[in-house]
Design a protein around this nucleic acid. Structure first.
Length: 85
DNA sequence: CGTATGACGTGCA
DNA sequence: GTGCACGCCATAC
């Protein structure tokens, strides 16, 4: 099995319940390297897998960050899912 | 194999 | 409160 860092990130992100969000740092730590948050962003940026709700991953500051389809779309989806800080 | 990149995080002015 | 610069890791080319 290709349990590379990327595979773990996908699995972790896919495990995020609707209405909840995770920070890049948190995902990186769960993936095995808390300092790999930079890689997590790069991986998710290249990820276009619909099975992975990458829009539920935000920055540690609580800001949205970015999204493949556009950060605005990301915020929109989060609000629709019930994410209201 | 080596270089360049990026959806980050933190610190300092 | 805002903006700039550095450092860090994995991936892609």
């Amino acid at each position: 099995m290709d349990f590379s860092f990327r595979e773990r990130v996908y699995k972790i992100v896919a495990a995020i319940p609707q209405g909840q969000v995770r920070t890049y740092k948190q995902v990186a730590q769960l993936a095995g390297n808390e300092r790999a948050y930079r890689a997590v962003g790069s991986i998710l940026h290249k990820n276009t897998n619909p099975n992975v709700p990458c829009h539920r991953v935000i920055r540690s500051d609580g800001t949205i960050g970015g999204y493949n389809k556009g950060a605005k779309e990301k915020v929109k989806i989060l609000q629709q899912e019930g994410y209201v800080p």
